[in-house]
Design a protein around this nucleic acid. Structure first.
Length: 161
DNA sequence: TAGGCCATCTGGTCCT
DNA sequence: AGGACCAGATGGCCTA
């Protein structure tokens, strides 16, 4: 998972903007609105230092907002971990394979379809089907983890999206 | 360099 | 009221 590098994102707005945000204990990571060059927003930040009462109100609001942000980050981490587990549970995908979340969903979906198909064939034929193991996605000989080198497009085996 | 992907922030909405 | 969930916006990284 690429988390990217943080810290240079506020350069576009100038170091002064970043200093203000940093002084207020705010994140200057990517995506934050503090990176935007809005003079109105800069004024809002200054306002917090001007009026103590309004500042206290905004401060508590900001505290709540920061807490909500942290919860949202945690939630998205859980989601990313779930995607990772889903990816690693796909038998023909090596753990170090670069797979987007969309690809993961597509592959998982097609894998489920494949398993369902196997089950149906199993019902028709009570004994194990010798051909099934030689068809997608089990066509890789041996099925050892390091021998599952298949292109992403090949793995899709038909559009699922 | 454009486009894809991702992490993060944010405000709105719904639920408990 | 507070938390969970969601979608939009934003900017960084990577690759063709």
């Amino acid at each position: 998972m690429s988390t990217g590098s943080f810290g240079s994102d506020a350069e576009g707005c100038g170091k002064r903007h970043r200093r203000i945000a940093t002084a207020l204990g705010r994140s200057t990571r990517k995506g934050t609105c503090y990176n935007r060059c809005s003079s109105q927003h800069l004024e809002d930040i200054r306002e917090e230092h001007r009026a103590p009462k309004a500042h206290a109100h905004k401060d508590s609001r900001q505290t709540q907002r920061n807490a909500a942000n942290a919860r949202e980050r945690a939630r998205m981490r859980v989601l990313s971990r779930a995607f990772f587990r889903l990816k690693t549970s796909l038998p023909w995908v090596p753990a170090d394979t670069k797979l987007s979340k969309l690809d993961t969903l597509r592959l998982a979906s097609s894998y489920i379809c494949h398993l369902r198909q196997l089950l149906q064939e199993e019902r028709l034929d009570s004994f194990p089907h010798p051909v099934a193991l030689q068809t997608w996605p089990f066509m890789m000989s041996g099925r050892s983890e390091d021998s599952l080198e298949v292109s992403s497009s090949g793995r899709l085996c038909g559009a699922t999206a």
